[in-house]
Design a binder for these strands. Sequence first.
DNA 1: GTCTATATCGTGATAGAC
DNA 2: GTCTATCACGATATAGAC
Lengths: 217, 217
Amino acid sequence: MLKLTKLKADSSTEQKIRDAAKEVFIAKGFSGCTSREIAKAAGMNVALVNYYFRSKTALFKIIFEAAMGDFLLSMLDVFNTDLPLEEKLRNYLDREYEFLAKYPEIPSFIINEMGRKDGVHIDNTAVFECIEHTGIFAECKVEQAAGRMREIDITSITVLMMSNCQFPFMAAAVIKQVHGISDEQYEKQLVQHKQIVTDMLIGYLFPGSISNQKTQK
Amino acid sequence: MLKLTKLKADSSTEQKIRDAAKEVFIAKGFSGCTSREIAKAAGMNVALVNYYFRSKTALFKIIFEAAMGDFLLSMLDVFNTDLPLEEKLRNYLDREYEFLAKYPEIPSFIINEMGRKDGVHIDNTAVFECIEHTGIFAECKVEQAAGRMREIDITSITVLMMSNCQFPFMAAAVIKQVHGISDEQYEKQLVQHKQIVTDMLIGYLFPGSISNQKTQK
DNA sequence: GTCTATATCGTGATAGAC
DNA sequence: GTCTATCACGATATAGAC
């Protein structure tokens, strides 16, 4: 009989704390919550949190890096395919909206914590090279040189993509309040918005593409 | 001789505290800073902060609402002009980038603080009606009915505008770190990006417009 | 109005019993 | 490994002298 302890959801104390910490840190940020709050959310006490993770700061670093990794992975395997660039970007937008629907707070979390002067600092080159290694940037340059893709620099392309994916989730609370719409309505809104964003971005980045004539399904 | 006390920069204790609080709160958020920190930044002590503003929370509300107001005003007077819609939106984008270059932290501040469950809540209708009162939404519907503007709903239009204005400033730290670029380089990047965003959005929202042939100056 | 001193509480972290 | 109890500190807020 096989050992199942590693296969079933790990419900050890350590894992419970890790899960609770992920939820609480991502929702409230490092300075927005307390160790006790995390312990309570895990059904434990502060002593155990520090027993397993030494300090609030150490635990935070683990959670932050994991969130960063999840986020990065969700895009890497889209880029690591053999599809033409335009299809890759369409898939990326699909994937990103899917990922963000599941974890809508991660971008805010990363942006806020990296924005603080005393906040987390990632290895400058690691993330960028990770993405560059997929060849996506080189591919853009090839398409641009061939005149199939609009000639704007890589940074602006990534900012365009990120803006239109992440912001609608980050600002959800504000938008819902200002427009007075419910959670369910906004979820539907986001489905439409993804289609709009895809049409707009692909249309702009690949001005000559036939697929630009496509209307919303 | 006129009284100048109200004309020159008010350097009273109360105003000094207000200014310091604005800076610190916007940079670090409510839970990211302390009353002492604000007092120190103003060259005062904690007792004075509470003497003038009763509590950290009360002071925060004042600062938050002021930031909200500044932000709102910057768009309202663009909408309160007689230009055609397309020009209004171009001007809005100009204004927004100008405003955000000056106060890049305000969107994050508003979004973060409104996102928290125990955070600030604004009067649902006030902001929306304030904007609606300019007639900008009605104008969109007229242009859409006339076939000059793409038929997407108002919420998506505002999300498109906001995403492409605010996100590049909110995520500045991440983008700079990931792409390994300096503050000065990123400032230049943003100037280019504004032009790209304008071309893309106007081109998408007004598909038939002649101005879409315009290239970047 | 402005300061120092202090009350009161919540925080991160740990010691020590079990 | 897990808990209770506790320490040392820093937070908000206020009392009271000047």
